[in-house]
Design a protein around this nucleic acid. Structure first.
Lengths: 207, 207
DNA sequence: AATATTCTAGAATATTATTCTAGTCAAGCA
DNA sequence: TGCTTGACTAGAATAATATTCTAGAATATT
């Protein structure tokens, strides 16, 4: 399989397109997508309206591009941390740690990614779905061995994602919204253990 | 504690305010909040611009009101189904069944509630937070006995919500987005059991 | 009934997204 | 070097749409 192209960092990359994306993220974070105006983005990015529209077509297009960027960045991290672990338990821990770690590191992008999905509009839904599905398939392959050999429970396939990442996802949303103050480190530990209990066959007799 | 006022049904209630909310929900669902125009809402609700602005102030105000309505409707259902159960296991099952059941019953409102939170804008954040916090506190009281008597694990308080509802929440999002086809009934069963495994003290020796 | 208050209407206005025209700039090439 | 092409940028002009305003109808209150 070809190595996925590295995800560029919109904060540091010097080209105008990245500058616009970074500015948009900042503005969207401050005022919300709807309230943010193109003029806001223009000022913050030092670009012109023409330039913005040349690159992204519409305001929604900016959001969609930002979204795609976020997805790729997030999943690259997730998959890197899940690959090559020696046990199912470590794989699960790695995933949850990566998820929560990423969110703590890039809270603005995370907030955008996880709370504004629909704001991007259904025109881009299919593209986003495909991107996510591809990433998730890669991840699923990493877990396959473990439930083939009876370490992880067999469940309807669609339920793995909710069970594995649901609690971390929910924790993250609340943490990002400032509605919970439990430290990421603690959450990683507790949520990993809980995920293990809910997914493992017979977790108490594992050693 | 005073009984909470019953949540009115915006679909059937005949007053103009409800009509506007119902129309807004429909339009928002079809095109997304941003793309939906006041004119769309006006046409579908048979109201006038003036009337809409009289009741809600801004377009965002409509979204906020819809959001508040959804929260109340959702939580009323959740709490009703968790109250008075004879065991912790049944309480948990009740909660998850209520969550998933509500979503399956009112998918448009659910989609709005769970996917557009940030679209409502931080001006209303505090109000929403308080509403949710109050509801959640009520729920938490219902669970207290069970972990006081050692049936449920003691964890950092903020992690109960993610563990309890996170997977159901994540399942719901995907189901609402058409990205998963597992039946609600099946999901309720599996996710209840999994939640029990992750929250109970020693679930395997419970009987 | 008289008055006040809430609600409705739709035209007028202001804001903001988007389009358009005219360039600039860098890369390739004769 | 000078020419050509395509990607990019600029900002004024336009169009779409949110919001305000004034006036009047309906409803409640005394």
């Amino acid at each position: 399989m070809p190595a996925p192209p590295p995800v560029i960092d919109i904060e540091t990359s010097p080209d105008r397109k990245s500058a616009i994306l970074a500015a948009a993220l900042a503005v969207f974070s401050e005022k919300g997508i709807e309230a943010a105006t193109i003029e806001d983005v223009r000022q913050r990015s030092q670009a012109s309206v023409g330039s913005i529209y040349h690159h992204f077509g519409t305001k929604e297009g900016i959001a969609a591009a930002l979204f795609a960027h976020g997805i790729d960045d997030y999943w690259a991290r997730l998959i890197a941390s899940a690959a090559g672990k020696a046990s199912a338990e470590r794989t699960i821990h790695g995933l949850i740690a990566a998820h929560i770690g990423w969110i703590a590191e890039k809270p603005d992008l995370a907030r955008f990614l996880f709370s504004r999905r629909q704001a991007v509009g259904q025109a881009y839904d299919e593209a986003i779905r495909q991107r996510t599905a591809a990433h998730f398939k890669t991840l699923f392959e990493l877990l396959k061995p473990w439930f083939k050999q009876g370490v992880l429970r067999r469940l309807p396939a669609g339920l793995y994602a909710p069970l594995l990442m649901g609690p971390a996802q929910e924790y993250s949303r609340q943490w990002l919204g400032g509605r919970i103050d439990i430290e990421p480190r603690v959450a990683i530990r507790e949520l990993s253990q809980a995920a293990w209990r809910s997914l493992a066959v017979d977790p108490d007799r594992r050693d």
